[in-house]
Design a binder for these strands. Structure first.
Lengths: 207, 207
DNA sequence: CCATAATGTGAGTAATTGCTCATATTCCAC
DNA sequence: GTGGAATATGAGCAATTACTCACATTATGG
């Protein structure tokens, strides 16, 4: 490993051909991670899997972490898209139904390529430590805030920023846990919903 | 890296001297992780830090992962001890106070050497994948179950095994999040408690 | 003390792997 | 066509690092 690290890729993909190469690289990286885990994930394997040369990988990604980060971003974008759709689709629905839709969106996003996404989430922490924070987290908060604002009269306690953060932390952890233990989507969403609604509505104090 | 991996240490520490060496190795490993992170964590650095030779490390730990696992076990034992004490101390107290004590125990255990423990928790997943599961998780569940059993009449919904699992998942995630964001212990415990009690008592449905 | 076991040493090995760069090939503008 | 730019290649370099082993040192029991 060299001491210095490039932080910018050599080239930006301009022609159609190179844009395809970038897509090939990303998908090859995903497949290597799925098939061989972080353990067997290296740039040579990615190149081989994609049927291209290592050099091409480094034409468009300055280093291995940048490639991994691109995969993470790709996953986060897909997740956000699903959540956005769920929020949009829940217009006019009850709060419980709306929350259910969001939870299901998250479960689906994770379930699609479960092993891959689990690895990516684990890597996220390590990679964010070095580089700057993500904006995906910010948008997710906004989406949840928007949904809750529509139902603010039904919610006992005020929903401030911290509360939204907590809701996201809780569902993320529970979704991960569900995937890890191969829970059915029905069971998983029921349990996540119980946690979220419990947090929002607060405990009964009527005994 | 050799293809084959030893799975047992060469020697068991018998004399006082070697038991001290094992302690030195563990503490050196912890300090390296704290100071240089996973990045700079290697067995040569551990030996240097401990003022001993690499060979000694491999006398008592078959490989690097075994050393890391020993650190994880050490942390889990400390956590369990604190939780055990909290459960014992909460005899006769109200449910809210009891839960508060448990949550604080967890927060304290993590806060003690926050950076180290965060790294260890992240590594736990990766290492458990290869080897078998832990028994620490089992005991934690039992402790929580025992506490809740004392208050079963106050709790609206039945507390089955899944519910206890969820409670642990939720608090663990929120404690991690709190440490990561340098929340005060007061704020953190308040938020975790809100989540836990909400989950236990279930949402109000009185509107 | 002496024999034997336990413990400690650390230079060196073998394997891995991120990444480069000189070169070749393909594409596009004119 | 032709020249230059974009793209692709892949053998090999350089650095890292987990781990070994032949040997030295220290403890223990008799």
């Amino acid at each position: 490993m060299p001491a210095k690290r490039r932080t910018k890729s050599r080239k930006q993909p301009l022609q159609q051909r190179s844009r395809e190469t970038v897509a090939v690289i990303l998908e090859a990286a995903a497949r290597v991670l799925e098939a061989r885990g972080l353990e067997g994930y290296n740039t040579n394997a990615v190149a081989e899997r994609g049927g291209i040369s290592v050099g091409s990988v480094y034409q468009y990604f300055p280093n291995k972490d940048a490639l991994t980060l691109a995969l993470i971003t790709r996953f986060e974008d897909a997740l956000l898209a699903k959540v956005r759709d769920a929020v949009a689709a829940s217009e006019g629905k009850s709060l419980t139904v709306s929350l259910n839709l969001i939870v299901r969106a998250q479960l689906e996003a994770h379930a699609e390529r479960a092993r891959l996404n689990r690895i990516l989430e684990a890597e996220e922490d390590r990679l964010r430590a070095a580089s700057s924070g993500t904006s995906a987290a910010g948008e997710l908060k906004e989406l949840v805030a928007a949904l809750l604002a529509r139902h603010r009269r039904e919610i006992a306690r005020p929903v401030d920023d911290d509360a939204i953060e907590d809701l996201i932390v809780i569902s993320r952890a529970m979704v991960d846990h569900a995937l890890q233990n191969d829970l059915s989507q029905a069971a998983a969403s029921r349990r996540v919903l119980r946690a979220i609604e419990g947090y929002l509505f607060g405990p009964r104090r009527d005994f």
